[in-house]
Design a protein around this nucleic acid. Structure first.
Length: 497
RNA sequence: GGUCCAGUAACUCAGUCGGUAGAGUAUCUGCCUUUUAAGCAGAGAGUCGACGGUUCAAGUCCGUCCUGGAUCACCA
């Protein structure tokens, strides 16, 4: 018999022994009177009064010695020591206590007191099993040395942590903070936008056509309708339809799905917010981006100055704004404003930047930007004036037909958001999407597809509109000082074991 | 996808020059009525990621593959 089977068999055996005592190892009801935090908050009084309490939680440590035993019970609010004596619980109940294993959910009734060594504890007069565990839980021990908690045999295997996130949360409770911050960020974004009169909406995740970004989709099939459906890569085109329909301020927070590679900043499904505001524009989107992110930081973290990977980042408004071409000039010493493809391609070649033969000058300019500029944009920076060639949904910049009114937001060398003055000229939009479909024919699998229904909606008239998208997982990474997107997603996508 | 690193007991990790697989924790047995990384004595527990090769002999050397991490490329 191998070790795991042996360990499982021991637990099964104890389970049967509990049943043999006439005790249900999975009772329906709990009689908790206090959370552990409530015990701690009232320590002085509860000890003075020998307060009778009933706590419930997971048994996370056990130190048995003959006819007594110490253990530690943990609920979501905290962790406390229990003290069990045979002559206090009685013979029969002590038999049950001896069948407890680490990881079991237990209920302890007893009085609050302080042990000889000064530890606040519950002295049990009755122990109850709430849920018997059948698998051994990895044991992480802690010792406090000079106020610092040292941990032993930490549950640290990154792969195991992601695959068995429940164990990660249980054994590495500090991980929970990331997801608490995540939830608060979401709530504060909603509070902020609701306060500005925005309406939260839901648009389809399953779409007959996909659009709104450059990406390959996941494809699925609807059996009854016998048609292909795509998991959305963005919410953009549906939200704009709502602007056509007369809503003036809408936003959606939800999952997007992109069928492409994974790395530290890309998970196949990720959470984004998109918002659209009629009668606004790129300047309006910069204002709302600054206001929203700095407000959320203040609400969630209590400050707009944060530390990210050893760098101090200041989210205090206003944020820097500069054009892509200026920034390339500054960091690469190259003037690309001519949009002369040959000259730009030659410069790329000199700096070992791969040049796709189908790439136009605009595409090459963004590659120069990515290489020379992006890593240096540590403090929040709005990069404006993007090449039209790479921005099929953004409105042209007056006075320069090669550029559009678009920004991307960079913080700490990473991209966080993308916004345009939205293109509302239906004929121009049709030309742009048609140009994208030509790129598709030349092999660009991520080029946009022509969405006739969307174009028809624009033909009914869409007001001048500002639109913004922000990758929320990355924002959460920034706020929690994580460099890996998997750390901020509870169940990140992994390959099969 | 390229390169580099890692995968050994349930957990955390050693394993030298190729020579019968190791420790701590956890588990089991015994002792122990104020311990706290409890302690003492003993025991069980492994397809050394998978497959193939070299060799008298492979955890160790070689090849292929799987999984994860780092990095580069691609990608927002």
């Amino acid at each position: 018999m191998d070790n795991v089977k042996q360990l499982l068999a021991v637990r099964r055996d104890k389970l049967q022994k509990i049943r043999d005592l006439g005790i249900n190892p999975y009772p329906n009801h709990t009689k908790r009177s206090h959370t552990i935090k409530e015990l701690k908050d009232n320590q002085e009084q509860f000890v003075a009064d020998s307060q009778q309490v009933t706590i419930a939680g997971r048994l996370v440590a056990m130190r048995r010695q003959g006819k007594i035993g110490f253990g530690n019970v943990k609920d979501e609010s905290g962790r406390i020591q229990i003290f069990v004596r045979k002559d206090t619980t009685g013979e029969e109940n002590y038999e049950l206590f001896k069948l407890f294993d680490l990881g079991d959910f237990v209920q302890i009734s007893g009085i609050c007191f302080v042990t000889r060594t000064g530890e606040y504890s519950v002295k049990a007069n009755e122990v109850t099993i709430l849920s018997k565990g059948l698998r051994p839980i990895p044991t992480v021990k802690e010792k406090v040395v000079d106020g610092q908690t040292r941990r032993f045999d930490e549950f640290a295997d990154v792969e195991l942590r992601y695959r068995k996130r429940y164990l990660d949360l249980l054994l590495n409770p500090q991980i929970k903070r990331t997801f608490e911050i995540r939830a608060r960020i979401m709530r504060e974004i909603r509070t902020f936008l609701d306060g500005r009169g925005y309406l939260e909406v839901d648009t389809p995740t399953l779409q007959p056509l996909y659009g709104g970004a450059n990406a390959r989709p996941f494809v699925t099939h609807h059996n009854t309708l016998d048609m292909p459906l795509y998991l959305r890569i963005a919410t953009e085109l549906y939200l704009k339809r709502l602007i056509v329909g007369g809503f003036e301020k809408v936003y959606e927070i939800g999952k997007n799905f992109r069928n492409e590679g994974m790395d530290k900043t890309h998970n196949p499904e990720f959470t984004a917010i998109e918002l659209y505001e009629a009668f606004s524009d790129l300047d309006g989107m910069m204002e709302i981006t600054e206001a929203m992110i700095s407000t959320v930081a203040q609400q969630v973290l209590g400050t707009t100055e944060l530390q990210f990977q050893g760098q101090a980042i200041n989210l205090q408004r206003p944020w820097r704004r500069d054009t892509m071409l200026n920034l390339i000039q500054e960091h690469a010493g190259f003037d690309a404003s001519s949009f002369d493809r040959d000259a730009i391609a030659a410069f790329c070649g000199e700096h070992n930047i791969e040049v796709d033969e189908n790439a136009g000058p605009g595409k090459l300019i963004t590659e120069l930007f990515d290489t020379f500029v992006e890593p240096h944009l540590i403090q929040p920076t709005f990069v404006i004036d993007y090449p039209k060639e790479v921005s099929p949904l953004a409105k042209s910049k007056p006075g320069n037909p090669k550029l559009v009114e678009r920004f991307e937001l960079f913080i700490g060398g990473n991209e966080y958001g993308n916004a345009f003055t939205e293109l509302n000229d239906p004929l121009d939009q049709r030309e742009r999407l048609t140009a994208q479909s030509r790129l598709r024919e030349m092999g660009d699998v991520e080029a946009n597809v022509v969405d006739e229904d969307f174009l028809e909606a624009l033909e009914y008239g869409m007001p001048p509109t500002g639109g913004l998208g922000i990758g929320l997982d990355r924002l959460i990474m920034l706020f929690t000082n994580n460099t890996t997107i998997k750390e901020v997603i509870l169940f990140p996508t992994l390959k099969h074991e």
